[in-house]
């Protein structure tokens, strides 16, 4: 048998078209993406037929874990006066003021601590421990330590995770969760106060398997301080009505 000579062909594949497509895809993802926020607990929101879109600015998001822990995320205007950073400092000042009215152990924060707080996406530790929490930022790997504290994974029994919230509550002696909400209303940002009055300014984000008991506690706390309108974050239910 004679050998059949196979002509050697170059295996060079032209990748230009491929590159074009990937760049287009990349552009699409870069433009449409909003980054996932780091959250101390992962929740799956329940499905609902409601099609109202979530408000992205001027909103306090109350994250509720199935265990009943509560964290707050605040998203503000893009305006310079009430940027996220400025607003958070104003909020911390206000909540300190409200807290000191009713507690004998006064708290205060240094400018350095306020600076750290202004960069926090989500917060949720008792005010009495807030100073210690904010000081962590100056330590090596402080951000990781703070995240672990927020998620309750730092194995330190003295560190309490979540904003203190109680079932029994009153308008006159509010618990810390109510203080934060009140502080947000009174911090001087009219846009946020208005949004909270309309109900779009407070959003509850909770897992679908959270017991009613816990949801009711959060709602009841809001009702007591006359925050009667609020929104529940839900996912879109397929095949709605």
């Amino acid at each position: 048998m004679g050998r059949v000579k196979i002509a050697r062909k170059s295996t060079f594949i032209d990748m230009t078209a491929m590159s074009d497509v990937t760049v287009l895809l990349l552009t699409f993802f870069m433009l449409t993406s909003t980054f996932l926020q780091k959250e101390p607990t992962t929740v799956i929101t329940p499905a609902s037929v409601s099609t109202e879109k979530v408000q992205e600015t001027n909103v306090l998001q109350v994250l509720v874990s199935p265990k009943g822990q509560v964290w707050i995320t605040m998203n503000n205007d893009t305006s310079a006066q009430w940027s996220n950073n400025n607003m958070r400092v104003a909020l911390l000042d206000k909540v300190t003021e409200i807290y000191n009215e009713s507690h004998r152990n006064k708290i205060s924060f240094t400018p350095q601590q306020k600076q750290t707080f202004s960069k926090l996406g989500v917060f949720g530790v008792p005010l009495a421990q807030m100073g210690e929490f904010l000081n962590l930022a100056d330590e090596p790997e402080g951000i990781t330590k703070m995240d672990q504290w927020l998620a309750g994974e730092d194995n330190n029994p003295n560190h309490i995770t979540g904003i203190p919230i109680t079932k029994e509550n009153s308008d006159e002696s509010p618990n810390e969760f109510q203080m934060w909400i009140k502080a947000a209303r009174q911090a001087g940002n009219d846009n946020l106060s208005q949004a909270m009055k309309d109900g779009a300014g407070v959003a509850i984000k909770a897992d679908q398997n959270t017991s009613f008991d816990i949801i009711h506690m959060v709602m009841d706390n809001l009702q007591t301080i006359k925050q009667n309108k609020f929104t529940l974050l839900t996912a879109l239910k397929a095949g709605g009505e």
């Binding site: 990748m15 909003t34 409601s50 099609t51 009667n228 309108k229 929104t231 996912a235």
Partner: peptide, 30 residues
């Protein structure tokens, strides 16, 4: 192309496409 694919993978994993919906409720005062 390799590099682009890596970047795309990164963006795909880090983004949320679905925006949450909200359900507004109004409750009576306590």
């Amino acid at each position: 192309v390799d590099m682009n694919m890596l970047l795309i993978t990164f963006f795909m994993l880090c983004t949320t496409m679905i925006k949450s919906q909200t359900l507004t409720i109004a409750l009576p005062t306590n």
